[in-house]
């Protein structure tokens, strides 16, 4: 197996085009598991860790451009204020070792329904920036990025360059259920972003459908019902109704980690609690 180590982005894209058998590797926390279990035998590994721009983030026009190779540990320490939902999710990923290696780009590359970065990116309305040597750069709304179980919208010659996420204008929450208190793959997860500037709501559901997905109907319902102008107390019934609509957007299955019924039930609870906390935060901020 070849180990290809381009040191520039252009070289990486060139190699990607030339070697369709080369598997990109960033932190390797998914790739190495696949190799160890012999689930994949790529002809080559395309190491992306030597490309400086993948490991950087910047802000322009209130939008964070987060390089695909920024590990979770840095998302937590460097972006907690700008991208609180993503930072909360990053905090739940694996163990300290995994958070030092694992990247948001790798999470998107794997596109697992249980990937923890996905719900907050959905809630924030992020865009994935991908590129190829032949066609240059394009941006894909994250909601369109996940195309099936562990499948994404990348073309074979494309690499993920970055994600673009608007700096939070309002409270964000991320909640993840697992059957132990650390180092656990989510049984269900929910992300919420309130966008008071647009009087809009963003959501993301994890581990409760073939792909991470939004609860679009629940978003619209909540945005329409919330008392954005006076920011009065959140009616309990509204929180509940929102929770039920979020759960209705899910399409969970029974598996070894949890039952479909539990996943649905837990989403009603998570969404109800998340909106309660987020709305309280918003009221406090006012």
């Amino acid at each position: 197996m070849d180990f290809l180590q381009p040191s520039s982005w252009d070289d990486a894209l060139a190699v990607r085009a030339e070697r369709p058998d080369a598997l990109p590797i960033a932190g390797g926390t998914d790739v190495m598991v696949e190799l160890n279990f012999d689930r994949r035998r790529p002809g080559a590994l395309l190491d992306l860790t030597r490309i400086p721009e993948l490991r950087e983030w910047s802000v322009a026009d209130e939008v964070v451009r987060l390089g695909a190779g920024v590990p979770y540990a840095r998302v937590i320490t460097e972006l907690g204020n700008r991208l609180p939902g993503l930072a909360m999710a990053a905090r739940t990923v694996g163990s300290p070792q995994i958070r030092v290696r694992g990247t948001v780009g790798g999470n998107l590359g794997s596109a697992s329904p249980a990937g923890d970065a996905h719900p907050p990116l959905l809630a924030a309305g992020a865009e994935v920036e991908v590129a190829s040597a032949a066609r240059g750069t394009r941006r894909i709304p994250v909601a369109e990025f996940f195309t099936g179980v562990k499948r994404n919208a990348l073309e074979p010659d494309e690499l993920i360059a970055a994600v673009h996420v608007r700096t939070a204008r309002g409270p964000q929450q991320f909640c993840k259920v697992g059957t132990r208190n650390a180092m656990v793959i989510s049984v269900s997860a929910f992300a919420l972003a309130l966008h008071p500037d647009r009087q809009a709501v963003g959501t993301g559901i994890g581990s409760a459908a073939p792909t991470p997905r939004r609860a679009a109907e629940a978003e619209e319902f909540l945005a329409g019902e919330l008392d954005w102008a006076t920011r009065g107390p959140l009616p309990e019934g509204l929180a509940r109704a929102f929770g039920e609509r979020v759960a209705a957007a899910a399409a969970p299955i029974d598996d070894v980690r949890g039952t479909a019924a539990y996943r649905r039930h837990s989403l009603t609870v998570l969404a109800r609690r998340a909106v309660t906390w987020a709305w309280d935060d918003l009221r406090r901020a006012a």
Binding site: M88, R91, T92, Q173, F174, C175, K176, V177, G178, N181, A182, V184, S186, V269, L270, R273, W277
Partner: peptide, 12 residues
Amino acid sequence: PGAVGNTTHGEG
């Protein structure tokens, strides 16, 4: 319960 999964702040 749930730890940094942030599933409760004491509710329930």
